[in-house]
Structure formats: C-alpha cells, structure tokens
C-alpha cells in the first residue's frame, strides 16, 4: 500500500479517446480550466459523480438548461463541495450495503472547486471531510482569485498580484500577503495522497488524478490554472504560462503518497521568474527590483524543497 505504483499514463497514446466533457460550455476562450476538467474526466471515466462548487467552472459548464457534463454532476453552493461529496460517498456506501447497487462497483466521487471555494470559504467543509476520512478526491483548480465574480483576491492569490480588491495605486501595489500553501495545509491532515499539478505537464497531472482516485481515503490535487481574463494575458498563452510556472519554480509539481514526498517534475535548469511574471498583466506594475525580490523568495523555497528531497531536484537559475 505504501509505495506508489507504476505510472499509468506514459505517453499521449495512453490517454482515453472518450470525451466526457462536452464542448459548448462558456469558459473564456483559452481558459485552461477546460483542459484540466476534460483530462480529469478522461482519467475518472463514466462511473463518476462530480460535485462542483460555485465558480467559473460551474457557471460556465451548467448554464441552464445546458450542461457540458456527461457524468452525474451536482452543484449546491460555493462553500460546501467537500460536505456534499462526503454525503454522496456515504450514500453510495449505504446503497451498496442495501444491495441497491453492486457492492463491487467503483464509483469515483470527485469534489471540484476553485481557490476561493477551497482555500477560503470552503475550507471548513474540506478540513472536516479530510478528518472524517471519506474516500473521495478533491480537485482544487487554482486561478488565484475569485474569477467568476470579477477577479477579487483570495487566500491563494500570490503576493503583488493585482486584483480588483488589491488594486495598484498610491496606497497598494497589489496583494500584500503571501499565497496560502493550501496543499501543505491539507497534507497536515495526513490523508493518503496529496499532490500539486499543472496542465502543461498533463501526463503528470493525469497520473496524479489516477492515484488520487485509487487510494483508500481522501485525496487532494491542487492544480494551477492560468486564467487569461484575470491574469491578463493573451488567451493563446495559458499552457505556456503554466509550463513557465514550473520551469521557474514559481510552482513545484510534487506528491505526498502515504507520507512519501516526491518532486514529480524535476527542473535541472531553472528559468528566472521574470519569464513567468512579465507575460502577465496582473504583475505589470512590478519593477525589476520587485521581481528580484520574488526571485529571492523562490530561491529560498527551492532550497527548502531540495533539502526535503535530499538532493538538488530543482537546479539553479540559468536563463
């Protein structure tokens, strides 16, 4: 049980062709949430119940009377995806115990919520779910603000980022506080599986979704989701920016599998954070000196991670 299994998705040929996420949704052109959700369903397959918190994905994929979901789907509120998913998991257990559904049938229960719905208002429900130990996977798609309601800052908005509630002017220069380390806070609950992922590294992301669905107990996957509208970049750049996040180590792809920590996407040669930051309008106000300050913070985070891993899994800045 304790060692992680062989990777399932090795190349693009391993990705199922079946499309359980239908086009016709209203996500912005170039919204990487579409990529994430589409690939999530390819991993999960048809025996899946999706519980989606209010947010961009929910409003854009279930605009009444339309839905883009080809699997059972429920939306209840902004703050309670984890609680609703817990209830569904418990209900499935009862249905199996009563023989109303095949007790050997595996049904995936997936809670899907944004950073606001996870790090902020949904956190209490999430923590309860983890503590009770429900067998479900929670996927947090992190666009680093409340995008659906017009780009308000969240606990997961990074420092210095412009949002409509952390404006840039004489008094403020974007968000003051740090980004809340949600995946680490979740890891403190000592659940079987926690991982961070990024749609540019789609095979890594899909293997993590698969592992998350496989473990006996709660799992949590924190996925970076570049947002063209809120981060202020050309819609064609969403995946490139996601990749740069990892290449600069602004975002580190790791997993904690039954206590075993691993950086799943090593970065032997790191890029300077300016390559990530300068592509995004939300950081337009930053001076070169500000960016150097961010670089220093990333450097010390890399040092910390390398210490945990016990080797230089993320290398020095070379370009």
């Amino acid at each position: 049980m304790s060692s992680s299994p062989k990777l399932h998705y090795k190349t693009v040929f391993d990705i199922p062709k079946e499309e359980l996420f239908a086009p016709g949704h209203g996500l912005c052109a170039g919204c990487t949430a579409g990529t994430i959700v589409k690939l999530l369903l390819k991993v999960a397959g048809p025996n899946t119940v999706i519980v989606n918190a209010t947010g961009c994905v929910e409003v854009s994929t279930t605009t009444f009377p339309y839905t883009s979901w080809r699997v059972p789907y429920i939306h209840v509120a902004f703050e309670n995806a984890a609680a609703v998913a817990s209830g569904i998991e418990a209900a499935l257990k009862v249905l199996k115990a009563k023989g109303l559904i095949d007790p050997n049938k595996r049904v995936n229960v997936i809670a899907l919520a944004g950073d606001g719905g996870t790090a902020d208002i949904g956190f209490q429900a999430l923590s309860g779910t983890l503590e009770r130990g429900h067998k479900l996977m929670y996927v947090m798609y992190d666009n680093e603000a409340y995008m659906n309601t017009g780009i308000q800052r969240s606990g997961a908005t990074p420092q210095y980022a412009w949002t409509t509630t952390t404006p840039v002017g004489k008094v403020l220069r974007g968000k003051i506080q740090f980004k809340k380390p949600v995946a680490e806070i979740v890891a403190a609950h000592r659940i079987p599986y926690v991982a961070t992922a990024n749609p540019a590294h789609f095979l890594d992301m899909m293997n993590k979704f698969r592992r998350g669905l496989e473990v006996e107990g709660p799992s949590f996957i924190h996925v970076l989701q570049p947002c063209t509208t809120g981060w202020r970049f050309d819609p064609r750049l969403g995946i490139k920016i996601a990749r740069l996040a990892t290449e600069t180590a602004m975002w580190i792809n790791w997993e904690l599998d039954y206590g075993e920590f691993k950086v799943t996407v090593p970065v032997p040669k790191r890029k300077h954070v300016k390559h990530y930051i300068r592509l995004q309008g939300r950081f337009n106000h930053l001076t070169d000196r500000d960016i150097e300050e961010i670089q220093k913070m990333v450097d010390s985070e890399v040092e910390r991670i390398n210490k945990v891993v016990g080797k230089e899994i993320i290398g020095p800045v070379v370009e």
Binding site: A22, G24, H25, A29, T63, F64, Y66, R70
Partner: peptide, 19 residues
C-alpha cells in the same frame, strides 16, 4: 431541483461564433 436531464447537451449551444 432544476436538474438537467440530457448529459452533455451543451453541444446544442455552439461557440464557434466567438472566434
């Protein structure tokens, strides 16, 4: 409950005219 009973019926709402 406002249930939508046709899975994936957003295919009936093409988005090609956004281009």
């Amino acid at each position: 409950g406002g249930a939508i009973t046709q899975p994936g019926n957003s295919v009936n709402r093409p988005t090609g005219d956004w281009r």
